[in-house]
Design a binder for these strands. Structure first.
Length: 115
DNA sequence: GGCATGACTACCG
DNA sequence: GCGGTAGCCATGC
């Protein structure tokens, strides 16, 4: 009798990618929120690591829509260009000030609440 | 199995 | 609000 949840039956990375790729246009979420949606909010670091490998496994992943709990683009230096991540977000109608997403709470997308 | 790593978060002063 | 510290846990060697 398997105890694991259907979601956790897949690899941790896979779950992260499926959630991130469902983030709506012009919205952002946090690593902690994704980890919490998976079932292990403690694993927020793993979400970040999953994003780090995402360029190999899921190159089309909107990783620029994932920021830390403060709305800061911590993964900026992992992107192709440092301005790319900001440009992508600003192109979606967001306002970025010194790597910090303005109106962050307004555009925050919670996978637990919305999914 | 042990140890190091990391795109995080919470707590403390 | 900011810097330092601790906890967390999947992944790879």
């Amino acid at each position: 009798m398997p105890k694991e949840s259907p979601n956790l039956a897949k690899d941790f990375y896979t779950i992260v990618y499926e959630i991130v790729e469902q983030i709506p246009f012009g919205r952002v979420t946090t690593y902690g929120a994704i980890a919490n949606a998976i079932g292990s909010k403690k694993s927020s670091r793993l979400v970040g690591i999953a994003m780090n490998h995402s360029h190999e496994i899921a190159p089309n992943l909107p990783a620029h829509r994932v920021v830390n709990r403060s709305g800061i683009l911590t993964g900026q230096h992992h992107f192709l260009g440092e301005k790319s991540m900001i440009k992508l977000l600003t192109d979606e109608g967001l306002t970025i000030e010194n790597n910090h997403v303005q109106q962050f709470e307004h555009i925050f997308w919670d996978p637990l609440n919305e999914l």
